[in-house]
């Protein structure tokens, strides 16, 4: 795999952000791990959805941080895509939760609703 190109030379003098690229990557990695731990450890469907949102936010943070490092707006374009994806995922997930609840399930346990009928 070829190494990543260095950031533009003339812009280095312009760029002194509050968080460096490495710190942003560490923040995103820890945030993703917290979200993953939430998905794996919690069985409540609402908490699992929220943990999924945290993980999507971590991925979006990586895109924006990389876009800020290489001064490319494409990172924020991907951020917009992830935002739309998160909106769709949350809407459909919450609709499924409401549907399960309306069918008389007393609990939101993710393990008890492992069969969806068309």
């Amino acid at each position: 795999m070829p190494p990543l190109p260095p950031p533009p030379v003339a812009s280095q003098a312009l760029w002194a952000p509050a968080l460096s690229f490495n710190e942003s990557l560490v923040l995103a990695a820890v945030l993703f791990c917290i979200g993953l731990a939430g998905v794996l450890a919690r069985r409540n469907l609402m908490f699992m959805l929220m943990s999924l949102d945290i993980m999507l936010n971590a991925a979006a943070l990586v895109f924006v941080a990389a876009g800020a490092r290489w001064h490319d707006a494409a990172g924020q374009v991907m951020f917009l895509m992830i935002l739309a994806l998160a909106a769709v995922e949350t809407a459909v997930g919450l609709a499924i939760i409401l549907c399960l609840h309306a069918r008389g399930r007393p609990t939101l346990d993710g393990d008890s609703n492992n069969l969806l009928q068309g």
Partner: peptide, 17 residues
């Protein structure tokens, strides 16, 4: 003279989008 940080605002994102 260097500004505090290099910002990618709505203009850049819209052009790219």
């Amino acid at each position: 003279p260097a500004p505090p940080l290099f910002r990618l605002g709505v203009h850049d994102v819209g052009l790219s989008l």
